[in-house]
Design a protein around this nucleic acid. Structure first.
Length: 470
RNA sequence: GACCCCGUCGUCUAGCCAGGUCCAGGACACCGGGUUUUCAUCCCGGCAACACGGGUUCGAAUCCCGUCGGGGUCGCCA
């Protein structure tokens, strides 16, 4: 028996001819992300986009976008804008002009008419509400089987397959027809989509065959589900990409986290920069069972990216946020802001925390944590201790960490052992909080004027002559 | 109901295809300890799973069958 040998060239390197470098198409892979714009982009949808993107980039193929905007009600210009906005935010760049499905409607109808002409589809008004006839595809009654890139062999008995509508009685094409025709027209080689489409695939395969088009490879991604195993929805928490962005998550962190939902590199790596993900991504390692979102882990990962954020980027975004909050403006001393950011940088896990961590550096009416006040300030003797410390600090010749440290210990007098009895009240007095940066570096940055004022106020709070809200 | 898919720590998962090196490894979370004046970080330690039942085999998380459980789909959503 003779066996044909196919030479499959997955990656063709660029050929160098003299000084001329010729870019060769290194791969024929063409995948697409085909969302229907609804004004929000669901986390599961964007995860599908990410996997497609990773697959395309890893194979030197093309990542395309097709906007399935045939639902005129929901597909507003605004919804489409949001779609591209979140894609850009996540760095999901695409290779060719987006295709708008609404522009292909006449083509879809033409294809349906051709199918009727060839006896592969027919008109029927069964079940219609008197609006006219729909066009149904005549589903062959033989078994359908295909090898899913992720789930392996999948088959469905022919007798469980039924004819289905491809053009509604109002003349508009149905998803199945539009989707398949557009994929053919766009030359899609790998259809990578959600698990909720496996049933559709049996029908789509028949459509491809009826249209005489080569079958693409199919891969079905496991769903992202909630605690009950049901598809993750907005009722389960943040479900839209925009929410994560607005909450202050870093795009790279969300990207990394979502990549790991249903896929893993096969080793212990989890924190993986984009290039590493591209290099490691492999559809064969995608799970076939659904995955649950773990927001705690997302937060952890965000913290990793936050810690590795280049200092310049951190500064830029932090200042933008402080300004938006009215804590900083053009008149604020830049060196002071810089010093503050230096202190709190390692403590910011998610952007919104920045404000809470920084507020007392920039205004006197910062909030006081009631529990901390009760525990640290409202104790006998604290008021006097703070007064004594204030006197010491007022006369300090050098406002440095070491000098502040020394002065605090001498204010303690004989009670050197329990520096905490003064350190904690001071912290609450100057920051209103129970935790934060190291005390002395914090005092040093705050500066003498602020510290003295706040110690005085703290003393009054401790003495009960001043009450603070919150 | 029929059909399709899925089932390893609380969660994401490694291991399964090519059975032994797995009394099941990593991460997040949680608990305890250390570092820190505090919080966070960091370091160390701990808890915790092969859905169940048969079978094949000297040996099964890994192969086969069944059961149970979950999800999806079932002519005008995408």
């Amino acid at each position: 028996m003779f066996v044909g040998i196919a030479l499959v060239c997955e990656e063709q390197p660029a050929c160098t001819i003299g000084v001329l470098t010729v870019e060769q198409p290194s791969s024929s892979v063409r995948v697409r992300f085909a969302p229907s714009p609804t004004g929000q982009v669901h986390i599961g949808n964007i995860r599908t986009a990410i996997f497609n993107w990773l697959f395309a980039r890893g194979h030197g193929g093309k990542f395309l976008v097709r906007v399935e905007d045939t639902d005129r009600e929901r597909s507003t210009p605004e919804a489409i804008r949001v779609l591209f906005e979140v894609m850009e935010w996540l760095g999901l760049d695409f290779d060719e002009d987006p295709v708008y499905q609404s522009a292909c409607v006449s083509r879809h109808k033409q294809v349906a008419e051709d199918l009727i002409a060839r006896g592969l589809a027919y008109k029927s008004d069964k079940g219609a509400s008197g609006m006219g006839e729909a066009i149904l595809f005549r589903m062959p009654k033989e078994d359908v089987r295909f090898t899913d890139l992720i789930k392996g062999e999948i088959a469905k008995p022919g007798d469980s397959l039924q004819d289905f509508v491809i053009v509604r009685s109002d003349g508009t094409p149905v998803f199945h027809l539009a989707n398949v025709v557009d994929d053919i027209d766009m030359g899609i080689t790998h259809v990578i989509r959600g698990d909720d489409h496996v049933e559709n695939t049996f029908r789509h395969i028949r459509l491809y065959q009826a249209l005489g088009a080569p079958l693409p490879q199919f891969g079905h991604l496991p769903m992202i589900v909630n605690h009950q195993g049901k598809p993750y929805s907005k009722r389960d928490g943040a479900a839209f990409v925009g929410e994560f962005r607005d909450t202050g998550y870093l795009p790279d962190a969300l990207f990394n986290f979502l990549s790991l939902l249903g896929w893993n590199p096969g080793d212990d790596r989890e924190y993986m920069p984009r290039e590493e993900l591209v290099a490691a991504f492999d559809l064969a390692r995608v799970q076939s069972s659904p995955a649950q979102m773990d927001l705690k882990k997302l937060s952890w990962m965000n913290g990793c990216y936050m810690a590795d954020l280049p200092i310049a980027l951190f500064r830029e975004e932090a200042i933008r946020r402080l300004q938006a909050e009215g804590l900083v403006d053009a008149a604020t001393d830049a060196a002071y802001v810089e010093a503050v950011l230096e202190l709190i940088r390692s403590r910011v896990k998610v952007w919104p925390e920045l404000i809470e961590l920084a507020v007392y550096f920039f205004r006197e009416d910062y909030p006081f944590d009631a529990k901390a006040v009760r525990k640290r300030l409202l104790k006998p003797g604290v008021s006097e201790l703070l007064d004594r410390l204030r006197e010491g600090y007022a006369g300090l010749s050098e406002w440095s960490e070491s000098a502040l440290d020394e002065a605090l210990r001498s204010a303690l007098g004989a009670d050197q052992e329990n520096a905490g009895t003064l350190i904690h009240p001071v912290r609450v007095a100057v920051s209103g909080q129970a935790g934060g940066p190291g005390l002395f570096e914090m005092l040093q940055v705050l500066g003498r004027d602020r510290v003295l004022t706040r110690l005085e106020r703290g003393s009054r709070i401790a003495a009960g002559t001043l009450t603070v809200g919150e």
